[in-house]
Write a protein that binds this DNA or RNA. Structure first.
Lengths: 213, 213
DNA sequence: TAGATTGTTAATCGATTAACAATC
DNA sequence: TAGATTGTTAATCGATTAACAATC
């Protein structure tokens, strides 16, 4: 059965915790425990896991191994997903070096930038190429995933070049809000959306407690 | 009127776009345009803006200036919010150098790490301190915002030390899922949640088109 | 067995979307 | 004026939560 997007987003949380308890030698786990560890209600956990192959057993719980495997299958984590990244600033560098992505089969194979001082430099063991070569690389290598970590100004154009050359999913970290054509998934990740929530909360505290408390 | 969290998260998107049209000299903007630019329906925009002070005018739209100001006020963007960051790896470095945060009044004032090779080094104009000094700094400087960019193993303990010394909002980028005590807001930002959605989507494509297409 | 735990159905909740009167 | 646009109320939608029978 198809998993809704909020559920898909919770699978990695379950998966991470499953790995740690498997390492501890646990054979089974209850929805209660799994919920505790990931910040979800047990009913939520059971519902989410209900979309997966396999099932839990009353009085016993779920097999940790079987569950982890089911998540791997559902998320397509074993498939190799080569990706290009455009914009090798601090954020781009951090993301291309982020160790957690391998687990999901995401491999950033090419880096691009427009800054001549950055082009030709190395990040990890990848050499940064000139951004105008990105379309060609994407097309020739049949790459399906594009990551954008540029300033907002160039983002739209880059996204266009990506989709025109076969990219099917764009992970956009720039503050420009993008949306792709039919059949292309765009995930906009804007850190300021979270910052808004935090700022609002902290500012609210100051107001209520004032400088007298 | 209080804005719900999904609305708070959209304000930065509106704000960003408002700044750009103000720079272009536009005096007013319609909910239609604003929605177009940020990926929301016009009704959604009107609802979100309805929570703010001030109002739009029929046939005219909203005053761009007034709207931007109202968002600034609602999100408490002008209040100075000093913050500490623990974990000066690639991600931590990227975040402490991220230019967009100033806008929200967030100022990362102290950096901490446990790695002796990193302690004493500089990121921007801030010197990295030993992590065990974090509780003291937070307490003495009355800092209310903590950012965690460590590996998951140490995260829980760091969060505990933060809240015990007066931190009221934690922005957690580690893969450990945290939740704070009553009165402390924790925002868990796990990049793998987004990656799950992307991986699922791309893996689904491969399956349906196969290697024959 | 008794009690723990799943799986599933129903109820709730909150956000989004639609509809439309009011207004400029 | 006519048409565009807001503001607000109602309808829809989807996810979360609650309830509970089934089962080990």
């Amino acid at each position: 059965m198809k998993s809704p997007i909020p559920t898909l987003r919770r699978y990695p949380l379950y998966y991470q915790f499953l790995l740690s308890v498997i390492k501890d030698g646990e054979e089974t786990i209850s929805s209660e425990e799994l919920g505790q560890a990931t910040g979800s209600a047990p009913e939520q956990v059971r519902k989410d896991l209900g979309y997966l192959e396999g099932q839990g057993r009353s009085h016993i719980g779920y097999s940790t191994r079987q569950l982890a495997d089911a998540i791997v299958v559902r998320l397509g984590m074993v498939q190799e997903k080569p990706a290009v990244l455009v914009g090798v600033g601090n954020l781009g560098r951090a993301i291309s070096l982020y160790p957690g992505f391998n687990q999901y089969g995401l491999r950033i194979t090419h880096l691009f930038d427009i800054n001549p001082n950055i082009i030709g430099s190395r990040v990890g063991d990848i050499e940064v190429m000139a951004a105008d070569q990105m379309p060609c690389v994407v097309k020739v290598m049949k790459i399906r995933v594009g990551i954008i970590t540029t300033p907002p100004s160039g983002a739209r154009e880059i996204a266009k070049a990506m989709t025109e050359n076969g990219i099917r999913a764009i992970w956009n970290f720039s503050t420009a809000h993008l949306h792709g054509p039919e059949g292309v998934m765009v995930r906009n990740v804007d850190l300021s959306t979270e910052l808004a929530v935090i700022s609002h909360f902290i500012a609210g505290l100051e107001k209520s407690t004032g400088s007298f408390s």
